[in-house]
Design a protein around this nucleic acid. Structure first.
Lengths: 213, 213
DNA sequence: TTATGAATCACTCTTTTGGGTGATGAAGGC
DNA sequence: GCCTTCATCACCCAAAAGAGTGATTCATAA
């Protein structure tokens, strides 16, 4: 019927979501399932083994996250197109995914039809972006001109989320307490907040750091 | 083939998850789809209109949350069994869902087969509980004998998550700063933590308070 | 009735935070 | 070569947070 079906690899760690996606795609004409994977390492292996046209990729995965999967698969010669499909619309995730060369970014609250269309669009070379995601990127560009947290700042932030005091952070990161304070000041400025409690809330909301308890 | 299929209503606000579940259930023998709903109010209406045997219910829904759906549907005479299926394993959610009479509680990382089995178990009168969920409940009973936060403490906690200082909290809640400090001390004791940053992280993780930004 | 727990507040004291300023070396872009 | 960013640290200082203790009112449960 469809001479050249689009071969899709589904990567998601939640079995229900993964199987749900597979069940949705299975009966969609013009789309063929190349395989599925439940974690980052399996995803890289599957991309290389099955050479899909499009990879439906969740960002939060065990072992390797979505961005790492893209980078690793590319490094090993894959030419698959990556369509990020995630629950999270955290600014940082979007930014990183697009920077790593994701062809499209969809939130999991799209309808199946929108998903099918996005897959076809990616295949045609288009770059589907959720309107809400696009809006968020614009808003981000507006509100937060250029305030990406540095790696070190993220490490400090991670400690803050654990409830560590400045001294404790200094000890775990082998810094002086003064340096920790400086980092925290910068974090406050970049997140536009004034207390560590608020910084923690923002960090968790935006998904800048993960829960660790 | 199956003389008395189990009629299942699927309630989830994410279209992909909802349609994924529908696609999974559609081809499972012995299970029939009674309908689906994407928000709390539609869910109550659908429960009453379609009288399903089992309702697969997400907890976080627009308009009415899952617990409210259960209560409201029951109040209007529904005898459906509710199987909570959610991404979140926050203690509070579980507690509330079970208190409201959910027959079972599954996390979304179960496999389709486990899901099917859980649906059949609920139908037979069983009460499937994720092992991890059960463990969590036990751990909760162990670690936190009786440390529910009071209403007032939750209000204070909500302010803390917004990054409010003690003085700001005192102003918004019409308290003295000393009282706020007392509440916060009690909150720390009940959450077994020592700093407001940690309290904020715990509160958000357990779903004691919602993001508000 | 007594006990218990929630909510309210005061007072003291120490520690922690957070702001401000300034400085230095290393890395990378133009 | 210059400029920027990052990471590192120091010093000062005011404000906020947190621990500890004690006390009152009120409602509810034993």
């Amino acid at each position: 019927m469809h001479p050249n079906p689009i071969r899709v690899l589904v990567v998601d760690d939640h079995p229900i979501v993964r199987h749900g996606l597979l069940a949705l795609l299975r009966y969609e004409p013009g789309i063929e399932i190349a395989g599925d994977a439940a974690d980052g390492e399996a995803a890289v292996a599957a991309v290389l083994a099955t050479t899909p046209d499009v990879v439906l990729l969740d960002l939060r995965l065990p072992y390797l996250n979505g961005v790492e999967v893209m980078i690793k698969a590319r490094a090993q010669g894959s030419t698959a197109r990556f369509l990020v499909l995630t629950t999270y619309d955290s600014d940082d995730d979007i930014q990183r995914a697009l920077a790593a060369g994701a062809q499209g970014y969809l939130l999991k609250d799209v309808s199946p039809d929108e998903l099918f269309n996005a897959i076809r669009a990616v295949m045609r070379g288009g770059a589907p972006l959720e309107p809400s995601v696009a809006a968020r990127l614009l808003a981000r560009a507006h509100d937060h001109p250029n305030d990406e947290l540095s790696v070190r700042e993220l490490e400090v932030l991670q400690c803050m989320v654990r409830g560590d005091s400045n001294r404790a952070i200094a000890l775990t990161l082998h810094l002086s307490e003064n340096t920790v304070k400086t980092h925290i000041s910068h974090i406050f400025a970049k997140l536009s907040c004034q207390s560590r409690a608020e910084a923690v809330a923002i960090a968790l909301q935006r998904g800048l750091v993960q829960f660790s308890m």
